[in-house]
C-alpha cells in the first residue's frame, strides 16, 4: 500500500467531480473500492426489506446481481469520471503488479504481458468487466502459485485429504480428551457409591478366624447352658415315683402302643384273624425300635414292662390257644410276656 498512498493524495485534484460524496468515496481507497461500494449500498436494502419485501426488493436483488457481475462504476453513469478513474487505476495497477513481481519473483513474463494487453484493451474503451476479470485472474494466479509452490509430503492418500485428515485427527483427539473426564467422573461416582464395599477374600483371614472362634465359643457356652438347664429331665431315675411322672409324658407314645398291643393280642387269641397277627407284629417292631436306644432288655419303669398290670388270669388266657402267635413273639423280645412262665 505504500504505492497507493501517494496515488490517493494525487487523486483528489484530478477528480474534480461535481459530486463531493463520490469523490470522497473514490479517495478513500483504491484496492477495496468495489467491495466498499457494495457494502455501502447493501445497507439500504436491508432497511427497506424490513418494510416491504416485495417486487421492488426482487428488482433490487437483480440489480445487485448485475452489479456484482459488472463494474460498479457503471452505476455512476458518468463516463468522464469513469475514464478518469480508469486512467488513474491503470498506472496504479501497473505499479502494483511490479510490486507483486518483486515480491514473488516467479511470476511469468507472459502473465504480465497479458495484464498489459488487457489494460491496453481497457484503455481502448473496452467493457468495464475486463478489469474485473483481470483482477480475478491475478488473484487466481497468485493463489494457484501458492498452492503449487507448496511442498507436500509423499503420502499415498494424496494432498487433497491432508487438511481433512488433520481435522479428523484433531476431532478425534478432542473426543478422547472429552471422554477422559467423563469416564473419570463415572469412575469417581461408582467409587463413591461403592465406598466401604469390600469384597471378601477367598481364604479366611486370621481376623475372621478369630471372630469365628469367638462366636463358636459363645454358641458352645449357650448350648452348654441349655443342656445344663434341661438335663435333669433326661437323668430321671425311673424307679422313683416322682421322676416317673416325667417319663410318663415323654414316653406316652410308647405306652399307647403297648396298650394297643395287648388289645390286639387278646383279639388275636379270640379269633384266629390274621389281621390282628399282622398288627401285633407291627407293634412289636415299633416297640422294639423305640426301645432300641436303651441297652436294657426290659425297661426299668414298670408300665413299660410287658408284665405290667397283667394278671395271672390273662396270662392263662393267652396260653390256652396261642401257638400260632408264638412264632412271631419269639422274634420280638418285648412280646415275650405272655409266653413266659
Amino acid at each position: 500500500m505504500a504505492a497507493a498512498g501517494p496515488q490517493a493524495v494525487s487523486a483528489p485534484p484530478s477528480a474534480a467531480a461535481p459530486n463531493p460524496g463520490k469523490r470522497k468515496r473514490s479517495a478513500k481507497g483504491k484496492g477495496g473500492k468495489s467491495k466498499k461500494n457494495k457494502l455501502a449500498r447493501s445497507d439500504e436494502p436491508i432497511r427497506r426489506r424490513a418494510n416491504k419485501p416485495s417486487a421492488k426488493f426482487l428488482k433490487l436483488l437483480k440489480k445487485r446481481a448485475r452489479d456484482y457481475n459488472s463494474d460498479d462504476d457503471e452505476e455512476e453513469g458518468e463516463e468522464g469520471e469513469q475514464q478518469q478513474k480508469r486512467e488513474r487505476e491503470r498506472p496504479h495497477r501497473r505499479r502494483n503488479d511490479d510490486h507483486d513481481d518483486e515480491e514473488e519473483g516467479d511470476l511469468s513474463e507472459d502473465d504480465e504481458d497479458e495484464a498489459a494487453s488487457s489494460s491496453g484493451d481497457e484503455a481502448g474503451g473496452g467493457g468495464g468487466g475486463v478489469t474485473r476479470f483481470e483482477e480475478g485472474c491475478r488473484a487466481f494466479r497468485v493463489a494457484f502459485q501458492k498452492i503449487m509452490s507448496k511442498k507436500l509430503p509423499d503420502d499415498p492418500l494424496g494432498p487433497i485429504l491432508s487438511a481433512h485428515k488433520k481435522l479428523v485427527a484433531a476431532k478425534l483427539a478432542e473426543e478422547v480428551e472429552e471422554r477422559k473426564p467423563k469416564g473419570e467422573a463415572r469412575k469417581e461416582k461408582r467409587a463413591a457409591a461403592e465406598k466401604g464395599h469390600v469384597l471378601p477374600k477367598e481364604h479366611l483371614e486370621t481376623h475372621d478366624k478369630e471372630l469365628i472362634k469367638i462366636a463358636t465359643q459363645g454358641v458352645v457356652r449357650l448350648f452348654n447352658a441349655v443342656s445344663k438347664a434341661q438335663k435333669p429331665r433326661n437323668d430321671l431315675n425311673p424307679s422313683s415315683t416322682r421322676d416317673a411322672k416325667g417319663i410318663l409324658c415323654s414316653s406316652f407314645l410308647c405306652y399307647f402302643w403297648i396298650s394297643r398291643y395287648r388289645v390286639a393280642k387278646i383279639e388275636a387269641s379270640k379269633s384266629d384273624a390274621s389281621h390282628y397277627k399282622a398288627v401285633i407284629h407291627y407293634i412289636n417292631l415299633l416297640l422294639h425300635i423305640m426301645h432300641a436306644g436303651k441297652d436294657e432288655d426290659e425297661p426299668g419303669w414298670a408300665p413299660l414292662r410287658d408284665t405290667y398290670m397283667l394278671g395271672s388270669k390273662l396270662k392263662d388266657w393267652d396260653k390256652m390257644k396261642d401257638t400260632a402267635v408264638e412264632s412271631e413273639q419269639t422274634k420280638a423280645p418285648l412280646g415275650d410276656s405272655s409266653d413266659e412262665e
Binding site: 462366636a215 463358636t216 454358641v219 458352645v220 448350648f223 452348654n224 443342656s227 438335663k231 429331665r233
Partner: peptide, 27 residues
C-alpha cells in the same frame, strides 16, 4: 474340644440327644 457340645435333645436326624456334636460356623 472347645467346639463340642453334648446335646440334650435331638436337633436333627444326625445330632441325637446325649451325643457329642461339634459346632461349626459358616459365615
Amino acid at each position: 474340644e472347645a467346639a463340642t457340645v453334648s446335646l440334650v435333645s435331638d436337633v436333627d436326624k444326625l445330632n441325637r440327644a446325649s451325643r457329642k456334636s461339634a459346632v461349626r460356623l459358616q459365615e
